[in-house]
């Protein structure tokens, strides 16, 4: 469906890739609702995927006692809700990540404060 309008309705989208210095990536940590919402970060496409766990996410999620215990080799990723196996040695772009993609990670054995998903 589309907008019902009196005249031709054609306006630019606000958040196309060209408007950002780097592609925007959305990241969520499942079962950790102490962080009220997933996050948005512009990340250069040549960032190695493995840097997420070591360099990018500690500032965001390091407050949680589970974070230091994460074994990044066992982390399960999803992209747009589908199981997904990124290569940590490759870059975000080489792993096929595009502007406004959503990736989430689950940390088996670590499901929030006392397993409460918080």
């Amino acid at each position: 469906m589309s907008v019902v309008s009196l005249k031709p309705y054609n306006f630019p989208a606000k958040d196309v890739r060209e408007n950002f210095p780097a592609p925007l990536l959305f990241i969520g940590w499942d079962d950790h609702l102490m962080f009220g919402a997933p996050i948005a970060l512009p990340l250069p496409p040549d960032t190695p995927f493995g840097a997420l766990g070591t360099a990018v996410l500690p500032g965001t999620y390091g407050y949680h006692p589970d974070f230091a215990k994460i074994n990044w080799d066992t982390v399960e990723w999803t992209k747009s809700g589908q199981p997904w196996k990124p290569d940590p040695a490759k870059t975000l772009a080489e792993n096929g990540l595009k502007h406004q993609d959503l990736i989430r990670f689950r940390t088996p054995g670590l499901s929030g404060l006392n397993g409460s998903c918080n």
Partner: peptide
């Protein structure tokens, strides 16, 4: 706790 990264 203060979250510093912007939300989606």
């Amino acid at each position: 706790f203060y979250q510093k990264t912007l939300p989606m």
